[in-house]
Design a protein around this nucleic acid. Structure first.
Lengths: 182, 182
DNA sequence: TGACAAATATATCAATCTGATATATAATGC
DNA sequence: GCATTATATATCAGATTGATATATTTGTCA
């Protein structure tokens, strides 16, 4: 059980909050977790089946409104696996920014195109920052619930980070302007 | 040629600076690029062979000091592929922080262990920030060279970001303390 | 000089993950 | 009544990681 693939723990973590279907798990990955973790159906559904075989989650086949659903719940075994993993230090914090890659190779692209990359990045960051601030405001009004406290911590991380991205965008554009003008 | 896998362009970009062996490419990924992009031998060597077959790089088998080397150089075709890709907007900027995952599921882990995750993250950030500042200082003394200007942009991004991480660590620890004491 | 560790160098593979696609039904909007 | 969007599960080719195998050279300490 020691140190399985990460997706196992993502699913166990989400199911530790509440029972969910694979589809609902994907929605969580696209909203609450999207700023720091991802996951596709191609890993969600097979992993749920593996976790069921090893007794860490249980399936419940249901039909609601004529639609078939498979609702997954975490078991005691699953909870203890999750807790063990949570105690261990994080192994990898990784940034993978294509924007920075395109800046790094900018000598083949020029200042003008590089500025465009920065401006696109700036716009995207601004709109994501709006979303994060909305999340933060909503969470702030129900911090009594424990899960919300931890969620709030990750949202403030995103806000602080994105604010610094915007500051860097300013600096970077100024640097380029200076380099262009001589 | 339109929109091949990312590793193609990483290799072409590095070879646009200078001819390199696969081993030297890996070293670049472990140093200059490590803060925003990665890559393993398992993708480097096969991709170099593919690029050679499609005429974007050329191999040169050499022996220096009795050691066999394969030095790769970019061709005109490779350069134009790289330039085309560089002009297109970046498709994906992705953060994948296991630390944040462990914070998010903190309700199964508690405040004490969560604080430890933050402190470990803080220490790691401090030491990476030192490295980045060293990079920045060295680059600042030779900004006349074009490739260094673009490199410098990415390093300042890293510094701004990591500085904001450290500010967040303070805030996060204060939040936890407040939550613990009531 | 000899012994051992570290660096240089290429290559491959199982396990994993992504992005796309396929399939089907229910709800919503116009 | 028709089209689009949302719900829901499942699979697969292609890409990537992390580990491992192999072999030589260089550096270090005694």
């Amino acid at each position: 059980m020691a140190n399985a693939k990460k997706m196992n723990y993502v699913l166990l973590g989400l199911l530790s909050h509440e029972p969910l279907t694979g589809y609902e798990i994907k929605k969580r990955l696209n909203t609450s977790l999207r700023f720091f973790w991802g996951g596709s159906y191609g890993s969600i559904y097979p992993t749920l089946n593996e976790l069921e075989k090893s007794g860490q989650v249980i399936k419940e086949n249901t039909i609601s409104n004529g639609r078939e659903k498979i609702i997954y719940s975490i078991t005691e075994k699953g909870t203890s696996c999750l807790r063990e993993w949570l105690k261990n230090p994080a192994e990898k914090d990784e940034l993978r920014y294509e924007t920075l890659l395109k800046l790094f190779f900018g000598n083949e692209n020029g200042f003008e195109e590089t500025r465009k990359h920065i401006e696109r990045f700036e716009e995207k960051t601004k709109s994501e920052l709006q979303i994060l601030r909305l999340f933060a405001d909503n969470l702030f009004n129900c911090l009594d619930e424990d899960t919300h406290k931890y969620y709030y911590l990750t949202v403030t991380f995103g806000i602080k980070t994105y604010e610094s991205y915007l500051l860097w965008c300013q600096e970077a554009k100024e640097l380029i302007e200076r380099w262009e003008s001589k």
